[in-house]
Design a protein around this nucleic acid. Structure first.
Length: 110
DNA sequence: CCATCCGCGCGTCAAGTACC
DNA sequence: GGTACTTGACGCGCGGATGG
């Protein structure tokens, strides 16, 4: 569970989900399709069914992983938005407080 | 209506990372 | 190293909003 960069400090809103921020990868479009080895072009490999089954399992797992990943990301964004709201409120309160203190100070000085 | 745009979620691939 | 998991990027389809 590596937590990177700006995710290390979780305050205000409490438990933030773990979310990694990574540098973008190469933006290659996925135009390359799995190709069979040259020799296997006409006769299917000995365990073609097994290969197909493994691929389906992998795809299914990844499908679910992607869903989960998106869910976590949405939750993370929601947490960030909450935190923004909390900090904006705190900021507002502090500004008010500062104003009040300045007023008191000014009246004393007179 | 209908064409167009926009936002959203999905499935997939590929690259990175963690774990053994 | 090999395997499983995570996540960014891409392309696609769908449904709602909107202007003509």
């Amino acid at each position: 569970m590596a937590v990177t960069g700006e995710e290390t400090e979780s305050a205000a809103t409490g438990d933030m989900p773990v979310y990694q921020l990574r540098s973008p990868g190469s933006g290659l479009a996925q135009t390359i399709v799995m190709l069979a080895s040259p020799g296997a072009m006409h006769s299917p490999p000995p365990h073609a069914e097994e290969v197909t089954r493994k691929r389906e399992v992998r795809l299914m797992k990844n499908r679910e992983a992607a869903r989960e990943c998106r869910r976590k990301k949405k939750e993370y964004v929601k947490c960030l938005e909450n935190r923004v709201a909390v900090l904006e409120n705190q900021n507002k309160t502090l500004i008010e407080e500062l104003k009040a203190l300045k007023d008191i100070y000014c009246h004393k000085a007179e």
